[in-house]
Amino acid sequence: MIWLTWRQFRVQAAVVFGLLAALALGLAVTGPGLAGDYRDGLAGCGSGEACDRFRQHFFSGHQVQLVLLSAAVLLVPAVVGLFWGAPLVAREIEGGTHRLAWGQTVSRRRWLAVKLAMAGTAAAAAGGAATLAVSWWSEPLFKAGAGNASRLEPALFASHGVAPAGYALFSFVLGVAAGLLFRRTLIAMAATLAVFAALQFAIPLLVRPHLMTPVRADIPITRDTVGGLYSNGPGGPVHVEARTPAGAWVLSRGVVDARGRSVDAIPLKLDAGACAPDPSRMGPKDSCFQQMAQMGYRLRLGYHPGSRFWTFQWIEIGVFALLTAALTGFCFWRIRRLS
């Protein structure tokens, strides 16, 4: 059975792992250069503010690559579910070859178990390999962009840590289950894609933020805690946004007044008075922040700190392990009833 599974699976496996190898090769070639650029830049930037600027520049200069690579990592589970999982049983049923396979001296249960075990291991390995390669390559970017890029942000969270391996295994079993349910490869592929995509949107938006209680903090307004100031037109009230704590995944940000009520904006002006522009530097004068603080305004943040990354990863993989186990159970239940 192992031989047959391998014989039927090898082409699909070769395609996916071939693409992954090409990706890894590209990263291996460019990775050391990227890390070197970062090291050299830090060594040559001198003062604190200049180094901050370098980090900012370095991060934003490679942000596109990071987004693309994260997308590539997320693509692995989708591909594995669509092209390994969905056809696994559905293609046999379409071709009638399941009758041939089950006519041999091998029970359906064993037939399915070997296929799930072998291709499932490959799926998890593919997801793991992709995320490992990309995490290694993008390490300097996270060092540089600690303030801007949180690995807890949905797109980065899904493509780093252990989650992608779990997604890949889940997506593969999802494909198999869809194939067993619909008995048609194309329908199974469509269903797999729909469910997997829906989960990738629903979980970060609706589920993950609530898996742990977010930190709620009221922060005094100072030059360091404010990330941005703006007003809609000259003379309008000032909107203030809190600076994101390093590595944090911010769920909500706002401003509260002295009595703790949420306010939309602070009744000051950016073109006159305390908040008039400071000719000697970027942004308003220090008096602006002092004035706001004196009026009793504070910044309110709800967020998950970056240190929770691994906790969230393990919770996530636990959830997906449960889903995968349930789908596997369904597969074995369903194959007995398949006619």
Binding site: M1, W3, R7, Q8, G95, G96, T97, L100, G103, Q104
Partner: peptide, 28 residues
Amino acid sequence: GYVAQETPTYAGLTVAEHLRLGAKLNPR
């Protein structure tokens, strides 16, 4: 033994591989 309707075989496997399949999956 079962020769199912439309005598299904694996299109991508060779004749020899079908025999190997039989040998691997059947003790007798």
